[in-house]
Computed example of a mutant assay.
Amino acid sequence: MKTIEIKAQQFFELLKIRDTSMWEIFAQMIDGEEKEIIFLDNEEKVLFNYTLPDDLEKLKADQKVFAKEYAEKIAQNN
């Protein structure tokens, strides 16, 4: 499995500038091989990681799970 390291702050700033979602970027990265994406802070510390699936169908399933979990966390904080 290939590993990709991404500086989280710059990545999310780029998404905002380009007005795109991380899921669109992830979809473009799919090539039939799983990849581990490691998000780093500015000090190179691991913030979180994500295993990019090998096909678009699995990515869409991950997106639904993420959206549900994110909505639940937002609801808990309000």
Rank of each mutant, 00 (worst) to 15 (best):
R18L: 13
N77Y: 08
A71P: 00
T51N: 09
K64A: 15
F26C: 06
W23N: 10
I74Q: 08
G32S: 12
I38P: 00
D31F: 01
M29E: 11
D62H: 11
F26H: 08
T51D: 03
D31S: 13
N78C: 05
K58H: 05
L59A: 09
I4S: 05
E13V: 11
L14N: 15
L14V: 03
M1P: 06
K7V: 06
Q9D: 15
F12Q: 11
D19T: 13
E72S: 03
L59E: 07
Q76G: 12
T20N: 06
E5P: 00
V46E: 14
Y70G: 00
K35A: 05
F11Q: 09
E69Y: 01
D62K: 03
E34N: 12
I4F: 01
K64Q: 14
F11H: 13
I4H: 04
K16A: 15
E57Y: 02
K60R: 14
D41N: 15
M22V: 07
F26T: 08
Q63Y: 09
E34V: 12
I4L: 14
K45W: 02
N49T: 06
I6N: 04
Q10T: 12
K16P: 04
E34I: 09
F11L: 05
F48D: 05
L52I: 05
A71M: 04
K60C: 06
K45Q: 14
V65G: 01
L15Y: 10
Y50D: 04
A27Y: 02
D55I: 02
K7S: 07
F26D: 07
N77W: 05
Y50F: 13
K64G: 03
R18G: 07
M1D: 09
V65M: 08
I37P: 01
K58N: 10
A71H: 02
K58L: 11
T3K: 13
